[in-house]
Nucleic acid binder design. Structure first.
Lengths: 337, 337
DNA sequence: CATACTTGTGGAATCGGTTCCATGGAATCG
DNA sequence: CGATTCCATGGAACCGATTCCACAAGTATG
């Protein structure tokens, strides 16, 4: 069962390969008769062009690579979905690479994508420039998403890591909280660093307790969120409010609070990161720092197509905002401040 | 900045293209000198073989397609991750196709995958055989995962849709529940049909109330779970326990219960489907029907490699089991039966 | 009416690898 | 020692599309 080729189509239509190809690619210099004959042959034979052969000849593959740390993280799943949908609009196929939170696997995927000759890459980078040297040195158009690397001039779309945290800290302080625990992300990522700085500045601005013991350093994974909650709850003078720097660490921390019978909303106030669907299930629902993941994915694709076309779009920072729900109630309503 | 080709490598190493190719593909008939020279040239020039050209000549692309309804569903995200990891072990790249719960997009992705000449496809099919005619008629090896299509002899890995539901219904009945509401999946999918049949048989077996009004037909999406919970809670004689046939409908239903102040665990008992991480956050934690998603993904890949190798592996059904947690408490402990 | 410009077409080259086949030299055998 | 086998190698064909180029026929222009 050999696949049908354009040669078979040409033969069946009584024209040359060249003419068949022109008809199929919508070239204007084709006669109505040729169009009709080729169309009929394609239909009859069930011809499906070989994408490999096409992209070998053209230099474009109409494929972009999307390099993510982990699809199982709801934030990245949403991002993947948004990127894929928008890429489709531009006629691009998206090749997902799941680095599985490892720089080695990230490197392997970079190699694969370059071998596949993707037309461009959208990456949420892990590690530093060195880990991405292959990609950055390849000349392939790249756009960073969610995270940024210093010392590079790669265009990026990232969330505003300052405003959301600021609003959250002020919100908690205005409710009388003085000890606000913070489960930080890894300082190797721009996101982790910027959010921590924002937390420190906001704490200083409100005059709340700035003890270093209130900060736990996690790694954006659920387990580290759990570890953070344990550590902070066991302090001699434990925090009355918790703030976590990403969705998975929020999940881990909430699980620990539940296990220990520390009731969220009454026993402790909690602000999570990313407005994922599951957070609305909690009772009370979670106050979160939200940003528009769909927009982030869409814009990343648009920026990449611009880079592919030879442009050099400016990096963008998308707004974050605090969505107040039941997990950070007014002190008068049962919260011990 | 033209890409480095094997011709450049051959030239730099002072050998022919043929020899360079043999060295690169590990052909035994190569001299140590040739290996050394080619190796050095590859290193020096930064050669990266063009996957397009290679798969054009060989008939294999070392790529498999994974066709899923929606990555944003945590169950499918986990499945995607498992498939990708296992495929990697076999030297395959995974091309994700997100059908976005639409048969049109599914069809589009089938076309893309066939054009890309994937070596095989793992699919959680939507619709019926007709919607997959292109794929099934193409001669490309296919394995179904999670869902099954009748009237086809495609090998599949699916969860045991009977045992888990049975255990859940018996568990609830043994706690004294007589009216057990069921939020069913779409009857167009094998999973939806089998789970409903299991529910009906289990209800009959325990002698609980088998009123048709206790069954709501959803579509495996969160919104339909919410609609189901609303409808069932508004019955003149509402159920004292709810059971939902997938994770997203569970999420929707739980959200509605929370909104209405119907406390899960005390106001109503609830059994969810799929043991996703977020469910453990709930307080009380959710009793669920769980199955081993990782195993499902791994086995699907193994079966597909077997089909690619010319075998015809037997379909497999993986066990489900009930994990009892706080959302279905003993009646004596605060549950009104 | 001769020249120039379109228009549709087919032959052939091309993209970057892999692989068949022929060749020459070294090793092995009777 | 001659015949056979083995090994490493290079030339050339090939995979399936696209595209350059030349050409023939038809149309517009001076």
């Amino acid at each position: 069962m050999r696949a049908v080729t354009i040669k078979d189509v040409a033969q069946a239509a009584g024209v040359s390969k060249a003419t068949a190809s022109r008809v199929l690619s919508g070239h204007p210099a084709t006669s109505p008769e040729a169009r009709k004959a080729v169309g009929a042959a394609v239909e009859h034979l069930g011809f499906r062009p070989n994408a490999q052969a096409r992209s070998l000849r053209k230099t474009r593959t109409q494929t972009i690579g999307l390099l993510l740390p982990d699809v199982r993280n709801p934030f990245f799943a949403d991002l993947a979905h948004a990127v894929e949908q928008r890429a489709r609009d531009f006629g691009y196929l998206t090749l997902f690479g799941n680095a599985n939170e490892s720089v080695e696997q990230q490197d392997r995927y970079i190699e694969v994508m370059l071998s596949q000759r993707v037309d461009g890459v959208i990456a949420a980078p892990q590690g530093d420039e060195e880990n991405l040297a292959n990609l950055l040195g390849s000349g392939v158009p790249v756009v960073f998403v969610d995270r940024v690397l210093d010392n590079t001039d790669v265009p990026s779309v990232s969330p505003d890591n300052v405003t959301g945290i600021q609003e959250a800290v002020r919100h908690l302080a205005s409710q009388g909280h003085r000890r606000i625990g913070y489960i930080a992300g890894p300082q190797s990522s721009s996101t982790g660093r910027e959010r921590l700085t924002a937390y420190r500045e906001a704490i200083a601005g409100t005059g709340a307790d700035d003890a270093e013991e209130l900060i736990f350093f996690g790694d954006f994974q659920a387990a580290s969120g759990a570890a953070g909650a344990r550590t902070l709850l066991e302090l001699a003078d434990p925090p009355t409010a918790l703030l976590a720097a990403d969705s998975l660490m929020s999940i881990g921390a909430i699980a620990v609070c539940n296990q220990r019978g520390v009731a969220i909303g009454s026993g402790i106030s909690f602000v999570g990161y990313d407005d994922i669907e599951a957070f609305t299930l909690l009772n009370p629902a979670l106050t979160v720092i939200a940003h528009d993941v769909d927009a982030m994915g869409r814009i990343a694709v648009e920026m990449l197509t611009s880079v592919i076309a030879g442009g050099s779009p400016a990096s963008r920072v998308l707004p974050s905002r605090l969505i107040v729900r039941g997990s950070t109630p007014e002190p008068s309503r049962g919260q011990h401040p």
